[in-house]
Design a binder for these strands. Sequence first.
DNA 1: GCCAACGTTGGC
DNA 2: GCCAACGTTGGC
Length: 154
Amino acid sequence: MAAFWLMKSEPDECSIDDLARAPGQCVPWIGVRNYQARNFMRDAMRVGDGVLFYHSSCAVPGIAGLAEVASAPHADDSQFDPASPYHDAQSKPDAPRWQCVDVRLVKKTRLLPLTEMRVLPQLATMQVLQRGSRLSITPVTPAEWAAVTALLET
DNA sequence: GCCAACGTTGGC
DNA sequence: GCCAACGTTGGC
């Protein structure tokens, strides 16, 4: 049984349109530098899991499309790139600290704004809506997934 | 730019 | 292992 996730991306870095233009409409989810979020990718995600693609730190934050986990976990190359903002000098190539998965577009949807999500009782349990929640990757329950995907059809 | 909330670091 | 200081996230 596949699981479901919400993954935040800053559209300045990688928007839903950037994902749509990427080769194979697939990108490695680089740049996660939080252990809890890394552990979700490294330990819990499976190929085929559903992903809510969320735009954060932008004019209208919200869910911008549906995607899926498209690879097993692998090393995040940006940790070894001194020119990258995600460079981690402490991480050694023989023991990479940061892992990521590839994420493939399923479909771009209408934008479901955070403000709309906040007033919908069926979404009230979503982790991304909880007070003080900052985690860039959060699990989504089957019920939440069903509610969000239904809303995106409307 | 502000600031609440949370994560990480490092002295002890 | 505690916890204060500092850094980051991310909505507004």
